[in-house]
């Protein structure tokens, strides 16, 4: 219980830190008034000052922060200037698209990474091990934007199998999900391989074999179950990253999710929305990690004992 409370407190501190950083960054590059109104073409200085006052940018920064924080606690993340809607409403409209692509990418990566990692570990230094490690290396090395554009070129332009971009049909989900799954796939393959190799060398595996269990049962029931525990943490981090870090993929494939929303809000200089997106994604990321810590305790008694 102490462990959970400690982790909960740490999570709150992280979220609090994120609010300070996300609030503070709008003041890093000059007057936020100009960030919003741009070059103020056709505006008089009085109009510029009036707008600064309306936005509350003429108040001391700590007061602005406390005002924003108190509203955020009540679930009010402010109002978007660009979309002219409450930020929570916009985020709630866009978040499902990102969850959709993130889940599909994650499932896809696990469906490939787990068997690939097992084959690599159980056939160490074999041809299959080397092949899976090459795949993992490629997946981790290639930049997402390049993979995305190349996959469009090959599967949409040359082969004409899949649509280039957009959201709405299952076929439109394939290319962005595959692109997004490549990095977690590669990393999980390597992780599963290395943890499985470690577990396969443990005493209890030798005992299981000595009991006369079939190799498949030893692998699946004893070795893999233990090897997957650290992978769970990675999956959680991956999921959090996929939710927040799909900006490049969403932009390339014109996928209307949180990534494109964040990019749009940055380009539109919509500071309230940028802040809201950052805080929302940080809270999601922290929450996922907290849940994983909790699951970890359930799955691995050693964590409780420590």
């Amino acid at each position: 219980m102490d462990y959970i409370i400690r982790r909960l407190l740490q999570s709150i501190i992280v979220v609090f830190g994120v609010t300070i950083v996300s609030f503070g960054f709008q003041f890093l590059s000059g007057d936020p008034t100009y960030a919003i109104i741009g070059e103020a073409q056709g505006m008089t200085q009085e109009q510029v000052d009036a707008f600064r006052h309306t936005m509350g940018f003429d108040r001391p920064v700590p007061i602005q922060y406390l005002d924003w924080l108190s509203k955020a606690f009540k679930g009010d993340l402010g109002k978007s200037i660009y979309y002219s809607k409450p930020n929570t409403e916009i985020i709630s409209q866009r978040f499902p698209a990102t969850v959709e692509i993130a889940i599909f990418a994650l499932v896809l990566s696990l469906l490939i990474a787990i068997p690939l990692g097992i084959v690599a570990a159980t056939h160490r230094n074999s041809f299959w091990d080397r092949i899976s490690m090459v795949i993992a290396l490629i997946g981790q090395s290639l930049p997402t934007f390049w993979v995305g554009l190349m996959s469009i070129l090959v599967f949409s332009v040359w082969l004409k199998w899949l649509p280039v971009s957009g959201r709405g049909t299952f076929r439109q989900l394939i290319l962005p999900s595959v692109t997004l799954s490549l990095y977690p796939l590669a990393r999980n393959t390597r992780m599963i391989r290395s943890t499985l190799l470690e577990v396969l060398g443990e005493d209890f595996i030798r005992t299981a074999r000595a009991k006369g269990l079939k190799p498949g049962a030893v692998l699946l029931r004893h070795a893999l179950r233990n090897a997957l525990i650290p992978v769970i943490t990675l999956i959680a981090i991956d999921f959090g990253s996929l939710l927040g870090g799909a900006m490049v993929v969403e932009t390339i494939f014109a996928w209307p999710g949180m990534g494109t929303l964040t990019v749009n809000s940055i380009f539109a200089k919509d500071l309230p929305l940028v802040q809201a997106c950052v805080v929302f994604l940080a809270v999601i990321f922290v929450a996922i990690n907290f849940i994983v810590d909790f699951v970890y305790v359930v799955l691995d008694p050693r964590v409780r004992l420590r």
């Binding site: 554009l149 332009v157 280039v164 932009t251 390339i252 494939f253």
Partner: peptide, 18 residues
Amino acid sequence: FREIKDVDTRLFELETGG
């Protein structure tokens, strides 16, 4: 009117008739 931020994607769409 479709919004596509990435210019390469816009041109790929044109090339494929999208």
